[in-house]
Design a protein around this nucleic acid. Structure first.
Lengths: 208, 208
DNA sequence: CGTGCAAAGTTGACAACGTCAACATTTGAA
DNA sequence: TTCAAATGTTGACGTTGTCAACTTTGCACG
């Protein structure tokens, strides 16, 4: 490759990705511009175009990276002894990550990407995260001696995910801010939600 | 007021709002531009500025209108005989509206509005919708003979809302599309989620 | 050891956007 | 009748994404 790629030891491509993440962290996704990335790296406004066909491709890369980090975080959760404890740990890891990295979370699940089909690699790790959940649930069901009804399993996995996602996403919603909830309620919301999800799962499985 | 306001019987202000909704429905929130609104109405690109200080103010108006319609839809739900049935009807009305009007739903809960504090009227109806939920839950608890523990009530109301919102929001997520869920599962998801929420609520209230 | 070619970066241009400023027109109220 | 505020227009500026054409670089190959 011509031209020594040396942006603090990284390729311009990598430097662009890092800078994009920094900009998003500072001022949000909507104000991310390729020109700003280039400006902050001290290169011309067209340099990033040699590495990303468009702004959306850069953004898709950032999202993919966020999914990777997220899935790795879920993988690295403290494994519980029982499958039930493991599922709880998975839920806690999910919510903890969403609250600790709200920008990354919004990036993954709250952003409308303009052409998902054009960026297939982006959502690969998303499938991985859901597979983790399905497996943990399957182990718990097996531990409980329940026969693995695939349809109900899928539905319950979806229920768990959407409930977790709902909490994580609602906590960042503008609408939530106006509810004027007491801080004590907010603090208790996490464990309460996990408790309620657990209660829902221990209820008898509907007519399969 | 000078200059006959006649844009098909509406003020330019109203016409702008209608046109904005139409544009959002056609091509999404992000591609809404004041200039496009003006162009489609056959006025100059500065005309809308006489009625909206900025693009964000126009958008805030649209969001406020969406919240109003949404709250009205919840209010108009078929009231069940028992409080429990009413709560179920509320959940069904919520999900039905979210699925029938995905754009409006994303507009309300999926859009990062740039300065919420600057548009206080926008989220008034959001509070109203949550109050509806809290009331319905309170009636059900009273019907069950449970003493009204305000903290736990609030937590359960939040749980219900976040679960509903999670499903409604996840169904529109790009990530969901890649899970490649069988259509039968998707179709059953709604009632299953409502069932699970109900199961979680009939479980004993945690140590208050 | 030269040499050329493709990768990588630069410069310039264009259209579209939000928004500021200055101007023109209209109409309700004085 | 007149006048001032409301309403709409024209023009401009800085920003953005992106296309096109140019220049520079350094590895591969004769």
């Amino acid at each position: 490759m011509p031209r020594r790629p040396d942006f603090n030891g990284r390729t311009l491509r990598e430097a662009c990705l890092d800078e994009a993440v920094a900009i998003i962290a500072e001022s949000g996704i909507e104000s991310l511009s390729l020109r700003d990335v280039a400006r902050r790296l001290g290169v011309s406004h067209q340099a990033p175009y040699k590495h990303f066909p468009s702004r959306d491709h850069l953004l898709a890369e950032v999202v993919r990276s966020a999914f990777d980090t997220f899935a790795a975080h879920l993988d690295a959760r403290p494994r519980g002894a029982t499958a039930e404890a493991d599922l709880a740990a998975l839920g806690q890891a999910y919510l903890a990550y969403a609250l600790a990295h709200p920008l990354a979370y919004r990036l993954m699940f709250g952003t409308r990407l303009p052409d998902v089909a054009a960026h297939p690699a982006m959502l690969h790790s998303a499938r991985h995260a859901f597979a983790l959940l399905r497996e943990a649930l399957g182990r718990m069901r097996a531990e409980q001696g329940a026969r693995p009804e695939p349809g109900a399993m899928e539905l319950d996995a979806l229920f768990i995910w959407t409930s977790l996602h709902g909490l994580a996403s609602a906590l960042q919603t503008s609408a939530m801010a106006t509810l004027a909830l007491p801080p004590a309620v907010l603090a208790a919301t996490l464990s309460h939600t996990l408790q309620r999800i657990g209660a829902a799962l221990t209820a008898p499985v509907p007519q399969a």
